[in-house]
């Protein structure tokens, strides 16, 4: 049996109860190996964000099982006490909107995460700079978020998701505000990161340009997932 990456079995999530209950996830089964980037595709309202929130320990599922690495984090109930520490140390988030902290400069927006985990300020900033170089925003490292273009902000947000080298990265439409070259470059970076740090990455997307790059894709419709072989096209 696999004992690394992300494994989800029979995950259910119902919002509300009674007449107004919404069954957002009915039965989700999913596996992402370490070092793998998997696409998650589905129509609006199909439950993509809900799935990422469950996996990110931001909302509580209704039933099912989630495993991160060797640890069962959910089995009909949370199996981890400190969800905040779990998020901080083991999960990287990249959202559609960058949501940078406006009163911190670009470097500290990213370096804050290792700092929260106890890394010394200098080391944390060094880690941020390495990612900025890879993401080609190092020349904006001292700027405030409001001085950045949408694409630059998004790349900084991606750096923030990667900086703690989490074993899992959850990205919800990370390329939406980027042009196709930049979008492909971001996917390239995610692929590199996945290889380099053995990270399991899930990318939710509608983006026709990047869908062909995934080797494996999960389709989700009405809260149910279907696995599919992807094209796995190389990015030049």
């Amino acid at each position: 049996m696999v004992n690394k990456g992300i494994r989800i079995e029979g995950l259910k999530k119902t919002y509300g109860s009674g007449d107004t209950a919404v069954e957002a996830l009915k039965s989700v089964d999913m596996y992402v190996a370490p070092g793998e980037v998997v696409g998650l595709i589905g129509p609006s309202g199909s439950g993509k964000s809900t799935l990422l929130k469950c996996l990110g320990a931001v909302i509580e599922p209704t039933a099912g099982k989630m495993v991160l690495g060797d640890d069962v984090i959910y089995d009909d109930a949370w199996k981890v006490r400190d969800l905040r520490a779990l998020r901080r140390d083991r999960i990287g988030f990249v959202f559609q909107a960058p949501y940078l902290i406006p009163f911190l400069d670009v470097t500290d927006n990213v370096a804050l995460l290792p700092m929260l985990a106890g890394v010394r300020n200098g080391d944390a900033r060094k880690r941020a700079m390495e990612l900025f170089e890879a993401l080609e925003v190092e020349h904006r490292a001292k700027a405030m978020p409001s001085q950045l273009s949408g694409g630059e902000q998004q790349r900084v947000a991606i750096a923030r998701g990667l900086v703690n080298r989490p074993p899992v990265i959850l990205a919800d439409e990370p390329t939406a505000p980027l042009d196709s070259d930049r979008a492909l470059a971001v996917i390239q970076i995610l692929n590199d990161m996945a290889k380099k740090y053995e990270t399991a990455i899930i990318v939710v997307t509608h983006d026709e340009k990047i869908i062909p790059t995934f080797k494996r894709i999960y389709h989700i419709r009405d809260g149910v997932t279907y696995e599919e072989e992807g094209e796995g096209r190389a990015i030049e």
């Binding site: 990110g56 520490a85 998020r87 901080r88 140390d89 988030f93 406006p102 804050l112 929260l116």
Partner: peptide, 16 residues
């Protein structure tokens, strides 16, 4: 509020 939500998401303690 949004920044606080982000801070919580990335694991900032309530104390902070």
């Amino acid at each position: 509020i949004r920044e606080i939500a982000v801070l919580k998401l990335i694991g900032t303690k309530n104390r902070t």
